[in-house]
Design a protein around this nucleic acid. Structure first.
Lengths: 408, 408
DNA sequence: TTATTTATTTTAGTACCTAAAGTAAATAAA
DNA sequence: TTTATTTACTTTAGGTACTAAAATAAATAA
């Protein structure tokens, strides 16, 4: 008779095995059992299925002898070519396309300069279709299947409906982007906020694994945030949760790009810092409303080298940031707040006032034990996270589709 | 051989049946199956066990005929006396003790005036032991077992460790209260924030069931908040999440009871409103730092009846509240914000400026579709929520202990 | 060469669930 | 009044998935 609709234990255990193999690399059946709380007999049965489906392979025994007595472990590992995902990062004036294999490793990466603010929703769709088609044709040869596509976007997105609601990198609003790509490429399309991608990568790092409640603040052209609760991004009702950049520092504060006053972003983002400095300081020529990396580096240099006005600007940014973080601590009480993004280049110039503002705003009981740390920034991290999230989201499909193709 | 450690389906299904019966009242086996996605054969088997354990009873067929053809449904229902819980609400200068039955119905309630701010941790423990002992002796006669005790406390508590970290109703800090009570009364002791109790009750109401992400703001002597994410209270790392009252309105704002400046509580709590008014208005005599219900009602009356100064004070409170809510919307993006607590009495005098502040602070894309509503306040609601949470937390124990006692 | 150790596989047995068949208890229709 | 129909509940038969224990495999140590 039929499988009970509520009994998902085989499915759950199989996914657990796949994910353990992805996280830990090659693992023996005994250890897979111990790690996941299942018997090794069950692991034998699950791995036999996965082997038949071509999702895993047995690793040939090492030539250098295994240590210890007894029958040596037979390591099994994911077949990196069993599936792949494509992740596209959409940021202001640039898109990045990355191919990741079934292990989550980056196998290909390319950047394109694109005037994103000029694009209509149709332009963007067409552009993405073109670029992804090219990637499919050139880069996906050895893979058994394309499991999914992840679109990592700054701003407010609805993952559920696949709609870009509001992105600082784009001029249009409310574009249901996932549906068309899913239809065109016959695979799952995941739409994610870029900060959530970064947070997923950071949460997996050994230094932060014991932080079930993790807040990641992204400083850059704008200011983004991700809140992981028990390791999963908190999205809110419409996907506009964690909009730290537009939480408030001061009721009648500086003007923000969003049109309101007093947002944290209006003090601590690249454009806010540059705007405050441009009037008074000698800085590289360029669009001062959309400062380039080079422009920002020049400004940061001034602050770090002791220019008093630049220091004052960063100090005030740090104060706003700290004040905003105080609210985050009072409301989320996370284990850890990590500050990263391209804007961390200036973190040393903000740090002191930031900590001071936090202490001034919160009593010790509410300040709690939350660690607040900064963390080096790597422009490829977003897509690494997107790949991981896309694989995680599509493991179930990969599993059932491999099964189907084997049966038929 | 042994039951697989991962196979919890019978346990899960049994709990689901118990909880359905608690939420919906008497239900037939067919309907229990349909509601929980299990076959009625399984419900037959589960209900046979529960019947033997004495946790449910079959309801005798109704004298007025059931409508429709076919064999009439045999309704089963929880035995209200199968278990009970005691909930204690600890608020400033008052404690309430309530007995709830296995259905979650209040069976007994009593209030005691207690100078809570004068108590040491030991005093409190002794007092609670006394009061609970008396309740046990007098009120728990008909019940098969005391499943648990719930302590509902204003302020910051660690549910995990059972420690009261910081409560405005108490002078001491960091008191591990649960352990001693658990030892003394041989049952589970649940320590909960009062706002979480209220939120649990509200979330179950038909009007709000479609709000998986619910924020409840409690106005009163202090200002509390609860955030339910998918129906469960978000606690944070140390239990100090959702401290809305000490999130910020203004960097250099009014002095708060916590010792910091600019907290929302320093504008919109009872003591803040009364403090602002007492200098200038004729109000009932009394401790103006801890205004009584009567004092607050007098002040609210003035504002609602058009006294300009009182109106200005409430308007400013509304502005602070709205500003704080804007941050909550930006960070949590909930489906619904409910404003309640004894302080809602003055909500009409705050409403206009509150909404204005929210609109001024947030662009439409971030304002989202969140409903913001107020909701009538009932002083018994906290304990109703505490009972529900305690029952939910102890259903598993009740189940396994009834089983054990049946087997032996 | 044999004993020991450890890993994996096979076997036997259990718990749970569902579908389908059987039974029970009512109303509607002949 | 009897029979058919409908709906609810129970029993039976069959299937999946798991574990413990036994068997087998493959190494090292003695």
């Amino acid at each position: 008779m039929a499988l009970t609709s509520t009994d998902t234990s085989r499915y759950d255990n199989t996914l657990a095995v796949i994910r353990t193999l992805r996280d830990q690399g090659p693992v023996a059946r005994v250890d897979l059992g111990a790690l996941n709380g299942i018997s090794s007999a069950t692991v034998t049965s699950i791995s036999a299925e996965l082997l038949q489906q071509g999702l895993i392979t047995e690793r040939p025994p090492e030539t250098p002898r295994p240590t210890g007595r007894g029958r040596p472990k037979t390591l099994i590992e994911l077949d990196p070519n069993a599936a792949c995902v494509v992740c596209i990062k959409l940021s202001i004036n640039e898109i990045q396309l990355v191919v990741g294999d079934f292990l989550g490793q980056v196998r290909h990466s390319e950047y394109h300069a694109v005037p994103t603010l000029m694009l209509s929703a149709e332009d963007l769709e067409t552009l993405l279709e073109e670029k992804i088609s090219a990637i499919c044709a050139q880069q996906l040869k050895g893979f058994q299947r394309l499991a999914g596509i992840c679109l990592a976007v700054q701003g407010v997105v609805s993952s559920q409906s696949g709609t870009i609601i509001w992105s600082p990198a784009l001029s249009f609003r409310n574009a249901p982007i996932s549906a068309r790509l899913a239809e065109r490429f016959h695979c799952s399309v995941l739409l994610e906020n870029d900060a959530n991608c970064i947070a997923s990568v950071l949460a997996a790092q050994p230094a932060y694994v014991d932080c079930p409640n993790l807040v990641v603040i992204m400083l850059g052209y704008g200011i983004g945030m991700s809140v992981l609760i028990n390791g999963v991004p908190y999205l809110g009702a419409n996907g506009s949760a964690a909009e730290f950049g537009h939480s408030k520092y001061h009721p009648d504060g500086a003007l923000c790009a969003c049109g309101r006053r007093g947002c944290i972003e209006a003090y601590a983002s690249d454009y806010a810092l540059y705007r405050a400095a441009a009037e008074h300081l000698e800085l590289p020529a360029g669009d001062s409303a959309h400062p380039s990396e080079q422009q920002m580096q020049a400004l940061t240099q001034l602050a770090l080298q002791g220019d008093l006005l630049a220091q004052r600007i960063y100090a005030e940014a740090g104060r706003a940031l700290g004040y905003g973080i105080a609210n985050v601590l009072a409301l989320f009480n996370p284990d850890l707040v990590l500050i990263t993004g391209s804007g961390v280049r200036g973190f040393d110039a903000m740090q002191a006032t930031m900590h001071h503002a936090i202490d001034e705003a919160l009593v010790a009981e509410l300040r709690g034990t939350t660690r607040i740390e900064s963390c080096a920034w790597d422009r490829d991290m977003t897509c690494m996270g997107g790949i991981a999230m896309a694989l995680h989201a599509t493991d179930g499909e990969t599993l059932s589709e491999s099964q189907a193709s084997f049966v038929s």
